[in-house]
Amino acid sequence: MAQLAASSKRVTTRFRAHSVLPGFNLALGFTLLYLSLIVLVPLSALFFKTATLGWGGFFDVLTNDRVLSSLRVTFLASLAAAVINAFFGLIVAWVLVRYTFPGKRIVDALVDLPFALPTAVAGITLATLYAPHGWIGQYFAAQGIKVAYTPLGIVVALTFIGLPFVVRTVQPVLEDVEAGVEEAAASLGAGRWDVFRRVIFPAIFPALLTGFSLAFARAIGEYGSVIFIAGNMPYISEISPLLIVAKLEQYDYAGATAIAVIMLLISFALLLGVNALQWWTSRRGVR
């Protein structure tokens, strides 16, 4: 008993030790309350609704072919879009931080547009552009490549909505890496590639990873823009959020939440993995 009290006291002191700033208890209480109201309560409602299905019902949803292929489409397309965004978003951030050119501010502002545009508008616009008779789509069609109404179209839409996440997370970190560091490395004899690989990349990698996972997570949940360009063919270009809507259309709330729960669990596992990777790389950086 005494031991327990002692250990709990130690925990409190350890907690206290962190709070150099005043108001820790209040702030923590507020944070927990806020998170509960905004995130945990809706999420637990989701789990409760799914629980009405029972394990058997949940398992049926989980092992349904159609659901599985929609999950495959959703996660693969989101992954592809996030990878594309990580690569090109990094270049955009690089250009915006390291160079000055006329119209830079406008380009900088343009990056945020996918945030602001209603996703349905984005989807309709992209579908019009990439349709076989569209401005861009006709050139692809001439090469025998169909973009709109295929999984490729989904990747296009998801790339569009995910771009700002990478740019906006990498940009401030890149700004903090002073050009002087690069110059120092160069003067010590490092080639351009070495400077990037050994000096810059390790510094921005955690931010890039964050941007990547944000873009990825955003893409998984995306519905509005995708349905207009996907074609929504079962087993081919049908995304999981669409199946959720189809289930709601049948007033099958529990089935709909079951798919949502599956998506949430997979996303959570993936994001946890990304966080672990980030933690590992930052630790390695310290050593």
Partner: peptide
């Protein structure tokens, strides 16, 4: 049917 739009307007 090459494209299954989710609504009539689509």
């Amino acid at each position: 049917v090459p494209v299954l739009e989710t609504g009539g307007r689509g």
